[in-house]
Design a protein around this nucleic acid. Structure first.
Length: 290
DNA sequence: CTAGGGTTAGGT
DNA sequence: ACCTAACCCTAG
């Protein structure tokens, strides 16, 4: 009657996404009361947030006029052609950006010839997309990465160590208790938009995903990436839910790994500081707390 | 307060 | 006619 339906605006959606990244899915009241989002979400209740997030997650992973498999229950078929029945596969191959994204972003030819797997790439990616002017705190970064990729349970500790290294490499700077990309490095990332092989995605996008994505893609390329991120988030959410049991097991291992990890972090930090010319004694290090 | 099932309005 | 998104209700 009075208010037929109040459709969600893109600002509200964006605020919701950022809220989930910052506080985690399920903390609807917290998100709604956060001064960062409350102006945008003032007309939405915590329940509205929850429902909207449910819709977003659903259409992102369910994606489908082709298949209406809502909750696909894989029963480990003995003669299935699919080699990995555990993960849900999207029917449309063209909109799967997959983990190639982080590599693109953090591709620096000459910087570290040593190891540095893709974890640092994930961090840079997270900072680039969160792009908070005052930097993002560790929890925000952690949540972002944890929802987008599946990480080992001890990742939080690794994260601190990696951040220190990135600061040393002048790619990241620390403000108060938050981290952000340095201006110099942020520019380097924005410049190359990859070669023509990237091109446009298939114009024949399946169903309504294109409706939502199209809005943002036209506005800004960065938001486009954020959209892709959001889809990954939703996907990761689903996986995380399914992998709940595995996580409990992982938690047990985490307990064991934690002590080992402390040593690794210590070593990593030592290496970091020594490589910057600091002279440390074992005693100094021993007095440091974790 | 949140999660989840259920209901209805709007759009194709 | 069917599908989705917003809204509502209720148990935990």
């Amino acid at each position: 009657m009075g208010a037929p339906k109040q459709k969600w605006t893109s600002e509200e959606e964006e605020a919701l996404r950022r809220g989930v990244l910052k506080h985690g899915a399920g903390k609807w009241r917290t998100i709604q009361k956060d001064p960062e989002f409350s102006p945008v979400l003032s007309s939405r209740s915590n329940i509205d947030l929850k429902d909207k997030w449910r819709n977003l997650s659903f259409s992102a992973s369910g994606l489908g006029s082709r298949d209406k498999i809502r909750v696909p229950r894989m029963k480990v078929p003995s003669s299935s052609p699919s080699p990995s029945p555990q993960l849900l596969l999207l029917p449309a191959p063209d909109n799967v950006v997959e983990a190639s994204a982080p590599e693109d972003i953090a591709k620096s030819p000459e910087d570290d010839k040593t190891h540095i797997p893709k974890y640092s790439a994930m961090i840079l990616e997270a900072l680039a997309e969160l792009k908070e002017p005052n930097g993002s705190d560790v929890t925000t970064i952690y949540n972002f990465i944890e929802q987008r990729h599946e990480v080992q349970p001890n990742f939080r500790r690794l994260l601190c160590a990696k951040l220190r290294r990135l600061i040393g490499a002048k790619k990241v700077e620390k403000i108060e208790k938050s981290y952000k990309l340095t201006d110099a490095y942020a520019k380097k990332m924005l410049a190359p938009m990859k070669d023509p092989s990237q091109k446009k995605k298939d114009p024949a996008k399946p169903s309504k995903a294109s409706k939502n994505l199209g809005l943002f893609a036209a506005a800004s390329p960065a938001l486009d990436a954020a959209q892709a991120a959001a889809m990954k988030v939703a996907d990761a959410e689903a996986k995380a839910h399914l992998a709940n049991e595995h996580m409990m097991e992982a938690e047990r291992i985490f307990k064991m790994a934690e002590e080992t990890e402390s040593l690794l972090t210590l070593a990593s930090e030592l290496y970091d500081r020594c490589s910057r010319g600091e002279v440390l004694t074992v005693l100094q290090v021993a007095h440091r707390e974790f």
